[in-house]
Design a binder for these strands. Structure first.
Lengths: 253, 253
DNA sequence: TTCGATTTGTTCGTATGTATT
DNA sequence: TAATACATACGAACAAATCGA
């Protein structure tokens, strides 16, 4: 890749970062689909003309970012949103009694509107561009616990319709991934406590005077490109938001 | 360390994990104090009779867990709680306008009581053992925003007093670290929305009808030993809880 | 300021172990 | 069984940062 033995001169960053970037760009280009294996370490090493150790170091970081997963004896695979582990990485509500019940989404509405200033800014699009606004109620144990509103750029999700959205089986991010080739790899959330408005209170079956947890999320794909804004209103009477700063990872003593 | 060239048979876990464990045990034993350098990779390799690469892999994991930090040209150091980066790793409140104001703790009370069943269970002690209960008000920009209550096993913090606690300069975890050799390395938090009781409302300067964010935290030291239970009541009128699932780390594209 | 010693960072190559197909 | 792929471990060389003489 670079003739110089170690380090380099043109770009001041190390070889394995460059390799990582190239692999990521291939991922973005859709060269390897989610769930599929990327070329073996040996093949990548030959392709990029670097040692296997350098490839491993590049992939190490992609694994840490949960962009790919390694399986000894099988290969290295592009992460899929249809696996439980990956799912709970983005879903943080757990029962106060401990249980992790699988949520049940119910689509309320899907509209296409023009992005206001704040939305456009956060999604990295122009003001006035069209965005889909999707509202859902999420049930845990058949009881409505979360109401959420999603905003996504219509340009990225061209032919999206309420039918298609409602007919998906699997998670929303799995749907983005399989139908639109958009891979959510990271989220950032801001939480606060508030009182619900009349509509949210009605949907969650709580009084307007009873507080709810408000979660504002930005979901990102590769290279920190924002793809979705989501606001959730949560009834925390029987559920809590779990923030476990890196546990249940993998490599621990 | 183990004569066998690669892998082993007796214990099924790899050499570098064993090395990591031994290093961690030295940390627990207080062999290397926070802020001090641990032996160089070369020295550790000689000591454990393994290659430098194996030492590096062990240390890689300790770095990922923020237990030590590496500095090229200087050495590898035991993480200190008195650094900004480390501090904001455990402090998640940010201004809604974006700013990260340094908080200002104010001790309200320090009592020593007997642990009830739930407390004892979570702290890993016997019911009835003595625990310190510490209450604080935390101000941001001179305005009270957080009220919190800490529970720690008295046995671990033998000579703790309100004077000593209040006279510390630096963070609470820095105080645990420097005065008691207890290193908080991980926290787990559960969030919900609730209405404050009369006292909390008064301390935070809010109405009882206005919702607050409730954060229940368990802080752990090495090997997932719990050391502190903390409940915080937060006025989220002007501040939010930021949950940034691994960003601002270090090794990103 | 320069130089050399020390320490971590990067890269290479090789061999062997272990899991999968 | 054999081939393939990732996992572990070793050793060597040089780069880059730091620090003190």
């Amino acid at each position: 890749m670079v003739p110089s033995p170690a380090g380099n001169s043109l770009n001041s960053h190390p070889l394995y970062k460059e390799v990582k970037n190239r692999i990521t760009r291939s991922l973005i280009a859709g060269e390897w689909k989610p769930g599929a294996a990327i070329p073996s370490e040996g093949r990548l090493a030959a392709h990029f003309r670097v040692s296997v150790g350098t490839i491993r170091k590049a992939i190490d970081e992609l694994v840490a970012e949960k962009i790919v997963v390694r399986q000894q004896g099988r290969g290295t695979f592009v992460t899929t949103h249809s696996e439980d582990r990956q799912f709970y990485y983005f879903f943080h509500m757990v029962g106060k009694d401990g249980g992790k019940e699988p949520p049940d989404h119910e689509l309320l509405s899907l509209q296409t509107v023009k992005a206001d200033h704040a939305t456009a800014l956060q999604l990295g699009i122009e003001r006035g561009e069209r965005v889909h606004r999707i509202q859902n109620v999420l049930k845990l144990n058949s009881v409505p616990v979360i109401f959420d509103e999603l905003l996504i750029a219509a340009a990225r999700f061209a032919d999206l319709s309420a039918e298609k959205f409602g007919a998906r089986d699997g998670t929303i991010y799995g749907f983005y991934q399989s139908r639109y080739g958009i891979n959510v790899v990271r989220i950032s959330e801001r939480l606060s406590a508030a009182l619900p408005d009349a509509r949210v209170a009605r949907l969650l079956g709580v009084k307007q005077a009873s507080p709810v947890l408000v979660i504002k999320r930005v979901a990102y794909t590769y290279h920190d490109q924002p793809v979705e804004l989501r606001t959730s209103w949560v009834n925390t009477a029987r559920h809590e938001y779990l923030s476990d700063l890196w546990k249940a990872e993998s490599g621990r003593a």
